[in-house]
Amino acid sequence: MKFKIISLVVIAFIFMSFNLPKGILKKVDKEIKGTYQIETYELIPVDLSQNLVKSLASDFSNNNFFKIKSSIQVLGYAYISKAPSKTAQFDYLVLLDENLVIMKSKVLAYREEYGGEIGSKRWLRQFIGKTKEDTLLYGDNVVAISGATISVRSMTNAMNNLLQSLKVIHEKGIL
């Protein structure tokens, strides 16, 4: 029990730089533990140069990209960001394996009356297995959702930007 509290405090400290609310922090912790089937892990911010960050399609400026490490190996990576919906933004999490293949995506907080269907496991499942070599196209290989057009397009763009950015980071030998 004491170790769990210490782990949560360490995780909270890391995420403080991203200004995540406590509820979202708990969701991130739960998703990481469930996806990687681990109880304890270490999140290490991936340090990217400011010049590189400026050239990327995704926003990596808020210390929102982390290496997930067990005591003996790198398990994968976590990316936490925001995307616009009709009048607000929603928070999302993408978990990747050590080869930068998407293992899971999760909408952490959706703040609109309409369009929340993008948070469904069924809809988000379509991103699993996508790599830095993939391109996502709304209405083609990304399913449209009636009443959530803006959010679906936004999440599709966000995922495309992330995949393009990961490709650049990988090509530069950073990961």
Rank of each mutant, 00 (worst) to 15 (best):
K69N: 09
V152R: 06
Y114V: 02
N19S: 12
F3Q: 15
K67G: 05
V28W: 10
V168L: 12
Q37C: 10
K54T: 10
N157D: 08
D140V: 04
Q73E: 15
T131C: 09
M1C: 09
Y41S: 05
I68C: 11
M103H: 08
K33H: 03
S55I: 09
I44V: 15
K54H: 11
K2G: 09
E31L: 09
H170E: 14
Q89P: 02
T156I: 02
L25H: 02
S105T: 15
R153I: 01
D29S: 13
Q37F: 12
T156H: 07
V152F: 03
T87P: 04
L124C: 12
A144P: 14
L56Y: 07
A88G: 04
S85T: 15
E31F: 03
S146W: 05
V46G: 04
V10T: 08
V94W: 09
E42P: 03
L162R: 11
T40L: 13
D91Y: 05
I6E: 14
N157I: 11
N62L: 09
K172T: 04
H170D: 15
N51C: 06
M1Y: 10
V168W: 08
A57C: 08
K27N: 07
L137W: 01
S17C: 07
E98K: 15
E133I: 07
G76Q: 10
E39G: 14
Y92M: 00
S17A: 12
L43C: 12
S151C: 05
V10N: 13
L166I: 01
A88R: 15
F65N: 02
I150N: 05
K22E: 11
E39R: 13
A148Y: 01
K132H: 10
N160R: 02
K33R: 15
I80R: 00
K67Y: 07
